[in-house]
Amino acid sequence: MSVLFIALPLAILLGAAGLFACLYCIRSGQYDDLDSESYRILVDQQPGKSESPEVQE
């Protein structure tokens, strides 16, 4: 059972890593718009994303 002394702090540290990721997301504004995404999911594909090859003039 003495593994507890290592496992518990480790678990909390892992959780803390998740927490910091979440805090980073909040700070960077990912949660600022919760409206558009719910609509966007209705749309099948988005040809207009930046990964699509750009058209040459």
Partner: peptide, 19 residues
Amino acid sequence: ESLPPTLPGLRSAQVRLSD
């Protein structure tokens, strides 16, 4: 958001409905 490929030089357009 579908428009960028049709306008040269525009990489991406992201709409935010909430504001």
